[in-house]
Each structure stands twice: as structure tokens, then as C-alpha cells.
Design a protein around this nucleic acid. Sequence first.
DNA 1: CCATCAATCCAACGACTGATGGATAATCCC
DNA 2: GGGATTATCCATCAGTCGTTGGATTGATGG
Lengths: 214, 214
Amino acid sequence: MPRRRPGRPRRDDQRPTRELVLAAATALFAERGFDAVSVRDVAAAAGVDVATVAHHTGTKAQLYDACFARVFSAEREAVEAAGDRARAALAAGPADAVRALHDLVDVFVDFLEDRPETTALWLRRWLEPRRHTELDRRYAAPLYAQVEQLLVAASAAGALVEPAPHVTVRSLVWAVHGHVVALAAGAGSEARERREFRVFVHRLLDGLYPPAIP
Amino acid sequence: MPRRRPGRPRRDDQRPTRELVLAAATALFAERGFDAVSVRDVAAAAGVDVATVAHHTGTKAQLYDACFARVFSAEREAVEAAGDRARAALAAGPADAVRALHDLVDVFVDFLEDRPETTALWLRRWLEPRRHTELDRRYAAPLYAQVEQLLVAASAAGALVEPAPHVTVRSLVWAVHGHVVALAAGAGSEARERREFRVFVHRLLDGLYPPAIP
DNA sequence: CCATCAATCCAACGACTGATGGATAATCCC
DNA sequence: GGGATTATCCATCAGTCGTTGGATTGATGG
């Protein structure tokens, strides 16, 4: 390992240092949590010095927040893009709306399956008593509202009263998180688990909110 | 605050010290997690010295494990007691089996609503990459198997093929955890949230596995 | 070519961590 | 009563933590 001397190397030859640090920190925080990761760990994983981490991302808490903002923004963008497609289908009629709802949920499941660190960070964040209110407002609430709106629109003649849509959406999201955690634990065939979970989700939607057009 | 001198006070006048320490540690670990709680924090919360904590519960890791064993054993006992009642009803016929299934789920929801620290500890434990396999084997798997067995027995003529029962049970459990976290976040009326979540759960069961006798 | 600035590393500070050896006092058993 | 045991606290150790001041090197702009 060539010891790098102080000064100013590493520029333009690869990704900016800040991105290196954020990627390394995200992986570590997702795996071990805030308190079990030291800034020195992050620095070592990124191949830089602790002071360089501080220079680019400030304090440890700010680094943590930056990781969250990065991951959750990606999630929200993916869901909102699918939401736009769903809203377009909504105008076409209830049958298309039902299909759009299922597509939206599929996008969400696909996203979290491909990026398990998102689930890990979500769960860790929910466990922080101070943070999760702000988290709910900035990321969860808009996402939930989108699925909820689609749920109501897709229900038969909009006559949806119970179960309350927000409860259904929340439970669905948590079921996905549980699915991702189970996948990470690696019990059984992964492909089969993925398939069966999708069956569950779609049956759940159809069972709770029967399509208007059978 | 009367400074206690060394020696041997506190016996028989209240709960044993070990129980005091475990209760304090459980509350702290559930709220902040393993790494954010120091042994000194636990000692202060229990009103004893750090060395006393070590004397009764060993190292910090052993203390953590003791808290888990205590909480999860209580959970398993509650569910198994309800499981026994359910198995008794099972012999009476499919209609009673359906009711027994709903009762079992209600017991589970009640338990976690009353003891939110159980959910917090579960989630934290799932996030530990090394631990959750053993956790799954010792606590989760038997619990899941019990609900799963009841699910199959309660389904119409046992013709249950999909969605796979274990996926349903896992999703149900995670939905309950999400419900408890949302309750802790304190959004909206708590009584209403509890009621609506129960509606959701029972509709889910009826929708996915229609009772044999309508 | 020189002044300015950005990026990096080294070294260190004070605070806190988990753990433990040893002193002290109450209880138990004979 | 007196030794043995148990329970408690005090003091301290070595290690790690997050953070920062300052030195060093390269790029940039005139």
C-alpha cells in the first residue's frame, strides 16, 4: 500500500472524494448502525484520512444525515417516477388504475430488493426517537400519500372505508422491509422467496380492495 | 441523594438487584440500541455502581443477551399459551379454527402494543448480521410455525397453496412491528389506530384465506 | 513566478468507554 | 461469635472515540 503524502492528489482520475466517502459510510452505517461505526472506520473504508472525511462531510452526525438524504432521495425519485406513470393510467379507467397500483408496488419491491441498505437505514432511522418524526414528514408521508391515493382510486367505485388506506399502505411497506431482511438472512431459495412475496402482495391488494371490473 | 457506602445493603426490601438492572438495561437498549448505551448509563438508571452491574450480569454483551432472553421468552410464552387454546379449538372443526386463528393474532398484537420495547429489540436484533440466524432459530421459527400451522388448518379444506403461508406470517409479523412503531411515533388517535389495524389484520386473513364455512 | 486556495495527512487533545482489582460492609452458616 | 460468602462501591487502567490545529502538497489565476 503506497502511503500517500499530504498535499493534493486524487482529482479527476476517479469519483470525487465526497462520493467515495458517502458510499463507504452508507455501507457501513447500514450494516452496523451509527454508533458502531467510527469516523476512522469510514475513512479507512474510503482510503482517506479522518481529517479528510471531516473536511468533506463535516461532523459524524452530518455525515450520517448526508447518507440518509442520498439513499432516501433515490428511493423517492424511483417511486415518484412510477407514480407519474400510475396517475396517467388512472385517467384511463378503474381497470387500468388497478394495474397501475400493482405496478407501483412492484417498483417499490424491486427497488428495495436491489438496495437492501435502504431497508437497513429505514429501520435504523425508525428506531431513533427524535428523528423519525422529521423522517416521516420529509420522506415517508409523501410516498405513503401517493400509494394511498392510488389505492382509493383503484377501489371499486371509490367506496373504500375500511380497512383505512393508510394502515394498509404502512403494513405493506413494513411487509416489504421484512421480506428484504429475510432475503438478507438468506433462508431458502432467493428467487423463490421473491416470487412468493409478489404473489402475497398482489393477493393482498386484490383481497382487500377487489377490482371494480372482475 | 443519600450516598450509599460499600458493603451489602439492599436485600429483600425490594426486587432483587439483578432484576432492577435488567429492567433498566432493557428500557435503555430498546430506546437507544447497544452501542449508544454505556454500562454506566445502565448502572445510573438502576441506581447502582458499574461494578455491581458487572457482578450480576457479567460483560455488556452478556447483559444485552440477558435482556433479549427475558423479553423474548415472555413473548413466546404468551403466544404459546394462546397457541394451546387454538389447537384445542382446532379439533372442534374449521369454523372454530378460523376463530382461533384470529384470536391468536389478536394476542400477538395486544402483546406487542403493550410492550413496545419488544418490537424495538426485535428490530435491532434483525439488523445485526451475525445474530439474527440464531435468533430466528430459537424464537422466531417456532412462533412462525405455530401461526403457520393454524393458518393451513383454518384454510378451506386445507387447499392452501399460495401465497406461501410462511410469507403471509412473516409479513403479518412485520406489519405488527410497523404498527407499533407508528403508535410510538404518536401520529393521530392511538385508540383509533389500534382499532383500524385490527380491522386490517382480520380482513387480510379473511381475504387471503377465506373461511371454509361462510 | 508568485499568491491564493483547496485537498490531504499527521498528531494530538480531552472525553468517554468496558472492564477489573481491591476495600468495605452486611449476611449466612456453623 | 467468627470465618466464609455475597453484595456493593471506589479508583483506575488501557483503549477508542470525535474533533481540530497545523503542516504539506498540488492546482489555479494573474
